Amino acid sequence: MEDSEIHVMSEIHLGCPPATIGPFLSRFTFSDHSTIGVDKDGDLLLPRRRTSPSSSHGSFTVTIQHSITSTLPDVGLQVWKSELVLSDFVLHNMSLFNGVVCIELGAGTGLLGILLARVANAVFLTDHGDEILGNCVRNVELNSSLFHPHATVNVRDLNWMSEWPVEETLAHPKPYCWSLQDFEQVKSARFIFAADVIYSDDLTIALFSMLKRVMSLGCDKVLYLCLEKRYNFSLDDLNVVANGYACFRRYIKEDGLCEHSDKKSFVGKRIDVKQILQYTKGYDRGEDVELWEIKYVR
């Protein structure tokens, strides 16, 4: 069966009413990080949940338009668990992203970028395909009241399988295309984000090829990548394996375990997800989500 014929569903949407036609609106409630502190013993002080989350002091709500199910090429029309874990990380470290330029690869619905726009100077939400990008634009519009007054949010097409930047794109503007000013901002971007983009070996190979170019532009950049290990039975191995994860790990040298080299490589370290508060209400992280901090260095 072709990928375009296989329908998948994120567990995040399991509670949504069955629907096969048209988009669905979900509201994600987040605890405000500024209301969370510690007492004299160092224990966390969390705001009490009230009956109505939307009216709770110290919480805010993001409205996301999405599909209930999608084909594999259109998984960006759904919200996935790794995006919520990465959102928790962003909210836990919001001060890091004050006034900076951020890029998200495979932004999908745009949920993470909407959170970043609360403090960042500029956010580039990138994905591929007019339907996914159009849905992302709609979500940006639905939540623009949450953005920092000086923040700009740009939805741009980025096909990992193609060269980038492409001069023809600049000469013949199309929807979601890049401008020369965009590329100048990308050079100054300090942080790149990606969530749930590791599921196809071909796409993983293309992703790291793209990352080599993007992370070599301008200033040093840090990639925060969150993924969920997905296990399948392999006839070759006669065992249950996570092939997508194995492909990802072939690109990463673990920080502290790699030797010095004159050649640039991706060096990463795992972030302990259990040390990150869960600001996003109503989902179960499970045990198979990993968060990585990755740099492209010698």
Rank of each mutant, 00 (worst) to 15 (best):
D3V: 15
L91Y: 01
R190Q: 15
E11R: 10
Q275I: 03
A242M: 03
L14M: 06
Y199S: 04
F60V: 10
K40V: 13
L72A: 01
S234P: 10
V240W: 09
I64Y: 01
N232T: 14
C102R: 01
D220Y: 02
A122W: 03
W160T: 04
A107T: 09
L158I: 07
F208D: 04
I252T: 11
Y176T: 09
A195C: 08
E287N: 02
S31R: 10
G42K: 03
Y245A: 10
S70V: 05
I114H: 04
K81F: 04
W160M: 00
F191H: 12
L77A: 13
N121V: 04
T204D: 09
G268Y: 00
A189H: 00
G129I: 06
C136E: 05
L72W: 01
D41S: 11
M161R: 11
D236V: 15
G110H: 06
L72F: 00
L225T: 02
T169G: 15
Q275P: 00
L77G: 10
A122F: 05
I114F: 06
I36D: 06
T152C: 10
G256I: 11
V214T: 14
R230H: 07
D3H: 13
L84R: 07
P73E: 11
S59Q: 13
V85Y: 08
E167G: 01
H172A: 14
P165V: 07
G58T: 05
T29K: 00
D288A: 06
D272C: 07
V155C: 08
T109E: 13
S265N: 05
F60N: 09
E287D: 08
V8L: 04
T126F: 09
W178V: 11
L207T: 15
L46W: 15
N232Q: 11
A189F: 02
